[in-house]
């Protein structure tokens, strides 16, 4: 498989995940700011923007927050930018992608460009975008053969997921909104009902532990690392060139999370940053081993 094509799958996986997770996070955060007025809006907005590595200036209201995070096509850390980047990658591999995937991405793109940010109810409009992105992932899971392309896409998706869970936890909902914050963090990760079934109390520390270490919830960092490792093993079975460094990176992360030496009272915070760092190293390693053997070349005379 061409390295460029593999890279497009990888980034398609990443950007779809980024868009979906950011929509969910923004939607919940907007709701939280409206419902729980204990924190000044400016501070509440800044908490989300900082976790997304976005500038906080001039964003003082929930509405302005929605506008900033929906963002523009030009900035891939915003929702519109991530969808647009996902679409650009999908276009490059359109030949091998099912038409449904492309159409679902396209309609998410259109919905965003029609101005979610200015909708009467941002929550409702964001939900519409979320649904389309769920369709994209659904179609991918239903129709894509489990070949090299699929493994690259899943690898990208899982590494991005680890990063996004890290961003949700970086907001520290429990400190800012002690009563409603931890549940909002769970909702932002789509984890509330899964969590409730465990019977644990909804506290900041317990929620963090769940989102990092839970062995069954598919968006916990631990499960994402396991899926990423499985994707790399899948690539090896397909006979890609040397991937041992990449496998070591994701395998170590998975085993650290799986066999974490922790007493029930210990805090998992240290794992969060380490896991995000490991995910970043894995992405660099994937780029180095598969996508750009020779660096991006600019020719001079």
């Amino acid at each position: 498989m061409l390295s460029r094509i593999a890279e497009s799958y990888f980034w398609l996986g990443r950007y779809v995940e980024r868009a979906e997770a950011t929509v969910r996070l923004l939607s919940e955060h907007h709701q939280l700011l409206i419902e729980d007025q204990s924190v000044p809006d400016g501070l509440g907005c800044a908490a989300l923007l900082e976790s997304l590595s976005m500038p906080t200036i001039d964003v003082q209201t929930p509405r302005a927050l929605v506008r900033a995070v929906v963002g523009s096509e030009l900035d891939p850390s915003t929702i519109a930018g991530a969808v647009s980047a996902a679409r650009a990658n999908a276009r490059a591999i359109r030949e091998s992608l099912s038409q449904d995937t492309f159409e679902a991405l396209n309609s998410a793109h259109l919905a965003l460009s029609r101005g979610v940010a200015f909708a009467a109810s941002p929550g409702v409009a964001l939900h519409g975008v979320l649904e389309r992105l769920l369709v994209v992932n659904g179609v991918i899971d239903w129709v894509m053969p489990r070949d090299e392309a699929y493994h690259f896409l899943v690898l990208g998706r899982e590494l991005e997921r680890i990063d996004m869970v890290g961003r949700i936890l970086a907001i520290r909902h429990d400190l800012l909104w002690p009563s409603s914050g931890p549940a909002a963090a769970l909702r932002a990760a789509g984890a509330l009902s899964a969590y409730l079934r465990t019977g644990h109390p909804i506290t900041g520390a317990e929620v963090r532990r769940f989102l990092v270490l839970d062995p069954a919830f598919p968006r916990s960092m631990r499960c994402c690392a396991a899926d990423a490792e499985e994707a790399v093993r899948g690539l090896q079975r397909q006979g890609v060139s040397d991937s041992s460094l990449l496998l070591r990176e994701v395998g170590m992360l998975r085993s650290e999370l799986e066999y974490a030496r922790l007493s029930p009272a210990d805090d998992v915070s240290a794992f969060i940053d380490e896991s995000r760092e490991a995910a970043r190293r894995a992405a660099d390693e994937a780029t180095r081993s598969f996508f750009r053997q020779h660096g991006t070349i600019v020719w001079s005379h």
Binding site: M1, L2, S241, Q293, H294, I297
Partner: peptide
């Protein structure tokens, strides 16, 4: 394969295609 210029490179007069293998 449908390739773009960046998928190919020349080395000692042979043209190579960058693939995942």
């Amino acid at each position: 394969e449908l390739v773009e210029g960046r998928d190919l490179y020349c080395r000692d007069n042979t043209v190579w295609m960058r693939t995942t293998s």
